[in-house]
Amino acid sequence: MLIIEDGTGKTNAESYASAADLVMYAVKFGVTIPADEPAQEALLRRSALTMDGMIWKGRKMDSDQALAWPRRGVELDCQIKPDNYLPARIQYGQMALAAEIHTDDIDPVEKRKGAITLERVEGTVTREYATISNTSGRLLPAAPDRPSATQFADYLQKQGLFAVRA
């Protein structure tokens, strides 16, 4: 049975969404997920672990809580959110991430094709694809757009260089 975080900072929470939530999300957004509940729950656990590796705004509400959310000191739209604030986009983002992970599972890197680099039409069509580099040994994204990244955008710490107007 999947233990769901409810905003209290549970020490044994495994997910922000239930398998039933994931099924409803998949129907709404037309994404593919495993058919059986244990596999759905495993996918949600994997996505929650991936989320724990992200650098979020604020800090954990309690150092003993199992997951990254809820958090203290999260500023959004010039307001500090309550310590037990658990944004709906964290739950939706987890479900989007779970669907993305499943897509990566069922579409192995070695079967993916890169961008078309050559196309010739002379009676028959010849199409050549770029080689996808995978020297890191990590899976590459299955799709160019990642809905989870959009859901998480306001809650992640910004890193890197930023242009500043003078």
Rank of each mutant, 00 (worst) to 15 (best):
F162A: 15
E119P: 00
Q157M: 13
G53F: 00
R165Q: 14
I90Y: 08
D104S: 14
A88Y: 05
A35Q: 14
A19G: 07
K60M: 06
M61Y: 08
P34R: 01
T117D: 14
Q159E: 13
L67N: 01
R71Y: 00
A20D: 12
A66L: 02
D36M: 12
E75N: 05
N12Q: 12
M54R: 07
N134W: 00
P147Y: 06
A130V: 06
A66D: 01
Q65L: 04
V125Y: 01
I132H: 04
T126R: 09
R45C: 10
A98N: 04
E37M: 00
L161P: 03
E41H: 03
G7D: 09
I4D: 02
S136M: 04
M24Y: 12
A17S: 09
G93V: 05
A20V: 14
D64G: 03
M54P: 02
M1H: 10
E100N: 09
G93E: 04
Y85G: 08
R165E: 13
V74N: 00
W56R: 02
S63Q: 08
A20R: 10
C78I: 10
E110C: 10
V27A: 15
E122Y: 07
M54C: 08
H102V: 02
R89N: 14
A88I: 13
A149F: 03
G137D: 09
L49I: 05
E122A: 11
A68G: 10
L139Q: 14
K158A: 11
A142I: 06
F29T: 15
Q79D: 13
L161I: 12
D36S: 13
E14P: 00
F29Q: 14
G7T: 01
A166I: 14
L156H: 08
A68D: 00
A42D: 09
M95H: 07
E128W: 06
S18P: 08
R112I: 13
A115G: 04
A130Q: 12
A13N: 06
A26Q: 11
L43E: 03
R146L: 05
Y155H: 06
S136Y: 00
V121C: 01
Q79S: 09
G160A: 02
E14Y: 00
E119G: 04
M51L: 01
G160L: 04
M51Q: 06
S136F: 05
G123Q: 03
Q40C: 09
Q94D: 00
T150Y: 13
F29Y: 15
G123C: 00
E41D: 10
A99L: 04
L2G: 02
L43A: 03
Y92S: 12
V121W: 06
E5K: 06
G58V: 06
R46V: 05
M95F: 05
V164Q: 13
